[in-house]
Design a protein around this nucleic acid. Structure first.
Length: 336
DNA sequence: AATCTCTACAACCGCGAAAAA
DNA sequence: TTTTTTCGCGGTTGTAGAGAT
């Protein structure tokens, strides 16, 4: 048997693992009389234990409705799903898994699920992609190659590569990357048809203006900096994007949410609930604000030092941009 | 075979909330 | 209304057993 070896406390009450005899006494008493006052129970049941120990033993181990054995895959998914909303509210989570105790779920979380999420690159606390594994820099040459060979690479491939990246970065970085992606995509789509021939690829203000004129949703978000998602009480709508490929049993989860008192997410709770934003919305105003100013400065700098910029290749521009020491600017922040 | 390290989990502890006096 | 008691929750500990060296 695992656990803490048997001993007694200052009052002479036994601590540590329960013997089968003690278990039987506790079961017999509760089956006959109910637990009543836990404090009074031990003496009434003839147990040399504190009431707290009896309660714990009963609720976590002896209760007849406890389900033993390994957690099923569905239970596993449901725990992850619920934890993403509730955090370490083990007792609340346990109410959605019949036969499982909060202690059991807590242990399972700490020993299995936490590690599993970490291996998936997901932070088990925030349920957001981990940022400590991110190495954008190693992927950037690929992006730049893609950007400078847009006649050969389809926009969907850009999506593919960026989605690989996005699985590893946090929401703010994703938002920035998506802006970058959009700009690159604009290149890939429009360079061939010369639509952008008059736009300096590193004059970000021109680019942003261009995107705005296209009425691109990304720019609407960046201009307003408002969340575009509409609050909803559907559990489907609350799946953090990182879990959207987990094949969660949402009907079960949703039902659980709806049926249990206090767990249906209302407007107030939604206001406090922060799921991983759907990409672009996470771009903070402070970032964008800084970025705009900074990019403007940077563009002035590039423009003034390179009056013939239109004849320079994207790779040249990029190198020049990265060599520029004038900033902590927006794009350098993204990359660095 | 012996020792070390890791894993799993039952049980304990401290604290805050709720209930009772 | 205040104080005391009880309960329940979440975090942590201790240790048996498994696996690695």
């Amino acid at each position: 048997m695992t656990g803490i070896s048997s001993r007694t406390d200052a009052n002479g009450l036994k601590k540590g693992p329960w013997t089968p005899e003690e278990d039987q006494k506790l079961i017999d008493y509760i089956e006959c009389h109910g637990h009543g006052s836990w404090r009074a129970l031990p003496s009434l049941a003839g147990l040399n234990r504190c009431g707290k120990s009896c309660r714990l033993r009963w609720t976590n181990y002896l209760r007849p409705d406890i389900k033993r054995g390994n957690f099923t895959e569905d239970e596993e998914k449901l725990i992850i799903h619920l934890h993403s909303y509730l955090g370490n509210k083990w007792s609340t989570i346990a109410t959605h898994l019949p036969g499982r105790t909060d202690n059991e779920i807590k242990n399972f979380w700490n020993t299995h699920l936490k590690k599993k999420l970490l291996q998936m690159g997901i932070d088990p606390v925030t349920h957001q992609p981990r940022t400590d594994q991110l190495d954008i820099l190693t992927n950037l040459p690929q992006l730049l190659t893609l950007a400078s060979n847009t006649n050969l690479i389809s926009p969907s491939l850009l999506d593919l590569n960026l989605s690989t990246l996005m699985s590893q970065v946090d929401a703010t970085q994703i938002s920035k990357l998506q802006l970058l992606q959009t700009i690159l995509k604009v290149f890939s789509i429009n360079q061939a048809s010369n639509i952008l021939q008059n736009i300096d690829p590193f004059n970000t203000i021109q680019l942003l203006q261009y995107l705005k004129n296209m009425n691109h949703p990304l720019m609407q978000n960046h201009q307003g900096l408002a969340m575009t998602e509409t609050p909803s009480t559907s559990a489907h709508d609350f799946i953090p994007p990182v879990y959207q490929n987990l094949d969660l049993d949402l009907d079960q989860g949703s039902k659980a949410f709806d049926e249990h008192d206090g767990l249906t997410m209302g407007k107030e709770e939604y206001a406090n609930f922060e799921p991983v934003p759907l990409l672009v919305a996470a771009a903070s105003s402070e970032h964008l604000g800084q970025g705009d100013t900074c990019v403007l400065k940077h563009c002035d700098h590039v423009a003034s030092s390179n009056p013939t910029s239109s004849s320079i290749t994207l790779d040249d521009k990029w190198q020049e941009f990265m060599d520029d020491e004038a900033s902590g600017c927006y794009w350098k922040q993204i990359i660095e």
